[in-house]
Simulated assay, not measured.
Amino acid sequence: MSTTWVPGADAAGYGADNLPYGVFSRAGSPPRIGVRVGDRVLDLAAALGDPEFSASSLNPFMARGSTAWRATRAKVSGMLTAPGGRASAEPHLVPLEEVELKAPFEVADYADFYCSLDHAENVGRIFRPGGAPLSPNWRHQPVGYHGRAGTVVPSGTGIVRPVGHHPPAEGGEPAVGPSRRLDIEAELGFVVGTPTSLGRTVPTGDFAEHVFGVVLVNDWSARDIQRWESAPLGPFLGKSFATSVSPWVVPLDALGAARVAGREQDPPPAPHLRRVADWGLDIAMTVRVNGEVVSRPPYASMYWTPDQMLAHLTSNGASLRTGDLYASGTVSGPGRDERGSLLELTWDATEPLRLAGGGERGYLEDGDTVAISATARGMGGGTVALGEVTGTVRPALS
């Protein structure tokens, strides 16, 4: 475990083993790139002088590629751990309470997968009782859909309740109105740095050369709208109104100690989807509704791993762009308290959550605040904090 001279940083999960990147601004100054260290932000433009760190997003730096990412991480780590680096770094540490955090990167494209076996089986049992919980293709490829990059929003953005078509009652017509089944999905997102040309595929072994890091994702979902529109083409308006991401992008290299073998797959995947390295990730997630813990989803239980997701995403020759975001889909484990959506936690509102603060929830009500956080094991037994993604539900627009 690397230790830093910044007080309290290692114990807080934001020590030298983490060093997540974000975008911040101070009063009267334009946004710029920083690295979080404990309860401070290291101003990289001031500390290192590279022009990419004076940008208002991580995209220019991410576009430089994996060699630059690793060289910069090593340089910053040295400044924050070696006694000789203190003089050059300490003047450029800014207290968190003095900054405003911005969206960390400009989203180029956004795709969302459906890679938890436990989640997929739960959803199948809820929506298709008596039928097979999984569709025939699910164990052969990472199933996914394309979302809207323009509705990916930074943590803390209010979420306006969406309006859309609701499934009709027996023999009736569909109604149009605010969603009555607004849900969350606790997910992990992967941020692409190195682009590819159209027609090129990315093998599983090249995953770490293209993906810069990870963020926490809440893929807000209007289940009633989603259910009516999903035949035959799948999610559209029930998903595209908002997706929240956390403010800190944790580099892949910070998750080295969290890497585990992926879940056993049966049948064996197609050749282009076969794993050549361990990219299962032992990440512990926590979901809170109005400050109360309602679930602890374990990312290590995911069936498809992120290297396989990227290989599948590009297997038809689709190009990657710097700033592409793809998410894992809802993270759910086998336990009742490990489910990453209210759809599963309440079994489609038939078994409402009873909150300690009073009241019940089948789905979200206006004014509810959802917070998703996560931690992973760091090198030498320390902790790597992935931060938090939050959002508060606002009433539908009249």
Rank of each mutant, 00 (worst) to 15 (best):
M1P: 01
S2P: 00
T3L: 15
D10K: 03
G15V: 05
N18G: 13
L19T: 13
R26H: 07
S29Q: 14
P30M: 10
R32D: 00
V37Y: 08
A45F: 09
L48Q: 03
A55G: 12
F61H: 10
A63T: 06
R64V: 02
W69G: 02
W69A: 04
W69L: 02
W69P: 02
T72S: 13
R73M: 01
R73Y: 10
A74E: 05
A74L: 05
S77L: 13
T81G: 05
P83S: 12
G84E: 14
G85T: 02
S88A: 15
A89M: 08
P91F: 11
E97Y: 03
F105N: 04
E106Q: 11
D109H: 14
D118C: 12
D118Y: 13
H119N: 01
R125Q: 15
R128C: 12
A132D: 15
P136G: 04
V143L: 13
G147N: 10
G150I: 11
P154K: 14
G156A: 15
T157L: 10
G158K: 09
P162K: 04
P167K: 02
E170Q: 10
G171K: 09
G171P: 03
E173F: 13
P174Q: 13
P178W: 02
R180I: 05
L182E: 00
L182I: 02
D183E: 12
E187I: 08
G189P: 03
P195T: 15
L198P: 00
A208L: 13
E209R: 14
H210E: 11
V211Y: 04
F212M: 02
G213D: 09
V214F: 09
V214C: 08
L216I: 14
I225H: 03
R227N: 10
W228S: 10
E229I: 10
E229D: 08
F236R: 09
F236P: 00
L237Y: 09
L237C: 05
V245W: 04
P247N: 05
W248N: 09
P251T: 11
L252S: 00
A254Q: 06
A257C: 03
A257W: 07
R259W: 08
V260M: 00
P267Y: 14
P268G: 11
P268E: 14
R275S: 15
D278S: 15
I283S: 05
A284R: 07
V289Q: 03
E292Q: 12
E292D: 11
V293G: 11
V293T: 12
V294N: 03
W304Q: 12
T305N: 14
T314H: 05
G317D: 05
L320V: 11
R321P: 00
D324W: 00
S328Y: 04
R336I: 12
D337N: 10
E338M: 06
G340R: 01
S341E: 07
E344D: 13
R354T: 13
A356S: 15
G362A: 14
D366V: 11
A376P: 01
A376S: 09
G378E: 09
G381M: 11
G382A: 12
V384E: 04
E388T: 12
T390Y: 01
R394G: 01
L397D: 14
L397E: 15
L397S: 15
S398G: 15
